[in-house]
Simulated assay, not measured.
Amino acid sequence: MPEDITFNQPIIKYHNGAFIDQSDDIATEFPLTLYVNQQEFATIVCSPTNLEELVLGFLASEGVIFRRADIQNIHLDDSKGFCHITLNREIEQHYGQYTKRMISSCCGKSRQFYFVNDAATSKVSMTETKITAQEIFSMMDALQEQSTDFKQTGGLHNAAISDGKDFYIHRSDIGRHNALDKLFGYCIEKRIPIRDKVLIFSGRISSEILIKASKIGVGIILSKSAPTDLAIKLADDLNITAVGFIRNETFNIYSHPERVI
């Protein structure tokens, strides 16, 4: 397994009419294949850090596990890029359901879901957390300060979990979903309640990111970038406050503004 989240690559840089021999820090890409109960389940292309957290968060967000105790054994084979997980039970859902597209509402939830499993595992937020405008700016500034790997490579997504004042954990990954799964996995491992927490994210709030936030269980998501229309519709339906374009002392609230005071 690659040891670092970045590696140093010789490059030729063109600058002011001249070619210059230099080196550049490049984000490392690592495929990790998961076997659940001896069956191949998924391959995650990720940054090679905090892999057990990534596995826990991914399996929880897919509805395969609900708590750490659902796993009897987890074995990471870093040298070959495999992770073998043995559960204390059989997987209840059929593998095909994870990517089966739906064309109507499911389980009484939003009609905006594309996949059956997303509708089954997403949660309507019940959080009563409220945050101030200044706390929003402070959390985004703190995420920017933590994002040293992004500053090196320009090729990583960054995310953090906060109680509105202090960070609990910050994670980076080449995959935006992976960064969130690592946070989720950390909270599962440490048994940290999530419902009252805030998710801070560096990238665009797409429908996939909003659904991932819902699966994690947070009620507020903050981003320095924009949301998509489908993400806003999902945020409305799932009772999630989505705040975007947090920069230069401004931000936009796209859904459930009552949590921002």
Rank of each mutant, 00 (worst) to 15 (best):
N16I: 10
E52C: 14
I44W: 06
D21T: 02
L32K: 06
T28E: 03
G17T: 09
N37G: 03
V55W: 07
V36F: 04
A42R: 12
N50K: 11
A27Q: 02
V36G: 00
T49Y: 11
A27Y: 05
E53V: 14
A27N: 02
S23R: 07
A60H: 14
I20K: 15
P31A: 09
A18K: 13
L54I: 06
E52T: 13
D25E: 07
F19R: 15
T43A: 06
Q22L: 03
I20R: 12
Q22H: 02
L56D: 15
Y35L: 00
A42Y: 11
L59K: 09
P31R: 08
E40D: 03
G17F: 07
I44P: 03
N37M: 06
L34A: 05
D24G: 14
S61R: 10
T33P: 01
T43S: 07
N37A: 04
N50R: 11
T49R: 14
N37D: 09
I44Q: 02
V36A: 00
L56N: 13
P48M: 00
L32N: 06
I44A: 04
F41I: 03
A18V: 13
I44F: 03
L34K: 06
V36S: 00
D24L: 14
L51M: 10
T49A: 09
F19S: 15
I20H: 15
F30A: 00
F58E: 08
V55G: 09
E52L: 14
V45E: 13
T28Y: 07
V36N: 04
Q39D: 10
